[in-house]
Structures are given as C-alpha cells and as structure tokens.
C-alpha cells in the first residue's frame, strides 16, 4: 500500500490541478489577509471556504482520479499485490496530496502575515485539521462512488449530488424541520442534526472556537454544554473520524468483489 501511495502521491503533486488548487488557496489567503489584515476575520472567511470547497474538491478529484487511472489500475491488479492495497494506496495518495495543497496554500500566507505572533494559532490549526479530515472524508466517498459505478457520467453525477446534499440540501431540510416544529423543544434535535453531517459538524466546531461561540449559548445551554464538554468534543471528533473511516472500509469491501 505504501508503495502505491508513494507513487500516486508523486504523480499527483506534480499534476497541474494540484498546483492550481494550491495556488488558489495561496491567493485566497493572501487576498483575505491583505484586505482584512485581521487574522481572526480572515480565519472565519477561510472556514467558509474550507468547509464548502474542501469537500467539493475532494469529491471531484476523487472521482476524476479514479476514472482516469482505471487502466493503470488494471495493470496494477495484475501485479502480485492485494487489491485493497492498490485502492487504499491511491486513495491516501490523493487525499494526502490534496491536503498538502491545502496546508501549504493556506499556511504560507498565514505564516508570512505573522501567525505565530497572533493568538490565532490554535484556531488556525483547528481549521487546517478540519480541512484535512473533510478532504479525507469526501475523497473516500468519491472513491467509493466511483468504485460502485462503472458508468462515469453516473458516478460523477452521484458524487456531485452527494456533495450538494451534504453542503446545501441537508441544511435546507434541517432548517425547514426546525421552523416546522418550532413549538417543540428542538435543542436535542438541532444538536443531533448538526453532529451527523460532517460539514455542519466541522462548521460548528470551528465557530465554537471563535468569538461567535457565545451566540450558540444564546439559544440554550445544550449546544454549549455539549461542545464545551470533554465528552461532547471527543464525541464530535469521533464522529468525524467515523465519517473518514467508514468510506475506507466500504472501499476495501467493494474492491474485493468488483470485476475490472
């Protein structure tokens, strides 16, 4: 697996798209810092970009990479190597190269603008961490969708739809239900709904680290108690990890049975 990972990674970091992705983040971070010159404001905007764009890029690159390297994958399948190693190697190679673009693209401008002197370093690190795990989650899901769909158009469509659901539609339904059932106590429902979607969970976890956290306290102690407590925080982190691990297990399972 490590060998496949290594070569996939080398292949990908040299690709034009990785460079574009990296430059995009680099430019974005510089522009934000230049316009705001206030690291904490820049971090909030950065968060919005990461929790929406990170998953989208993960989904698109995951799908494209799988389909584009399918013929080479067939060559690899004929080599004396386990199937799961091939797909996991490719998956980790892709997820790591995307994460590298993210970390460097955002990291360099923040370091240049004096991140280490500001108190925002932990907020920044938590943003990077979230970006990292979201990339893994959505790249994994894209890989799974690609594995499950021979038809490329269908696979691509499903992956984009999945992203759209998680990033927008889910929240729409969630908000609708909240308004619909506003007569009832909704704290637990709201908490549960936001914890189950990795994009929402990431957003809430970052917001709670920033000043805005007190707003959460506004509606009731439930959010703050949950996310403020060690148990709640570790539960949230576990859920994110679960979201990352389940697609990987699904990839392994699917890869075992698939015909190429």
């Amino acid at each position: 697996m490590i060998k496949i990972l290594k070569y996939s990674f080398f292949d990908l970091i040299r690709s034009r798209w990785s460079l574009i992705y990296f430059l995009f983040y680099l430019l974005l971070a510089f522009v934000l810092l230049f316009l705001n010159n206030d690291i904490s404001k820049a971090i909030i905007t950065m968060m919005n970009v990461i929790i929406i764009l990170g998953p989208l890029i993960g989904i698109i690159f995951g799908i494209m990479y799988y389909y584009n390297s399918l013929e080479f994958t067939e060559l690899l399948l004929a080599q004396p190597i386990k199937r799961s190693s091939i797909f996991l190697g490719q998956f980790f190679g892709l997820a790591l190269s995307l994460s590298l673009s993210l970390v460097l693209g955002l990291g360099i401008p923040f370091v240049v603008y004096g991140l280490f002197q500001s108190g925002e370093i932990w907020n920044f690190i938590s943003i990077l961490w979230i970006g990292f795990i979201l990339t893994f989650i959505f790249t994994g899901i894209a890989f799974y969708i690609a594995l499950a769909n021979q038809n490329r158009i269908k696979g691509f469509g499903m992956a984009i739809l999945f992203w759209l659901f998680m990033a927008v539609i889910y929240d729409g339904i969630f908000l609708l239900l909240l308004v619909w059932f506003k007569e009832y106590p909704l704290d637990t429902f709201a908490l549960l709904s936001s914890v189950l979607n990795p994009i929402d969970l990431s957003r809430v976890m970052i917001l709670l680290k920033l000043d805005i956290s007190a707003l959460m306290g506004y509606t009731g102690a439930v959010f703050k108690n949950f996310f403020g407590s060690g148990v709640g925080m570790s539960a949230s982190i576990s859920i994110l990890f679960l979201w990352a691990v389940v697609p990987i297990l699904a990839i392994v399972r699917k890869a075992k049975r698939k015909d190429f």
Binding site: Y7, S8, F10, D11, L12, R14, S15, S69, E71, F72
Partner: peptide
C-alpha cells in the same frame, strides 16, 4: 491499453 499516471 497502456495508460499510465501522467506525471510520472
């Protein structure tokens, strides 16, 4: 079909 990782 020979198709290899393009950037290697």
């Amino acid at each position: 079909i020979a198709n290899f990782p393009p950037n290697l």
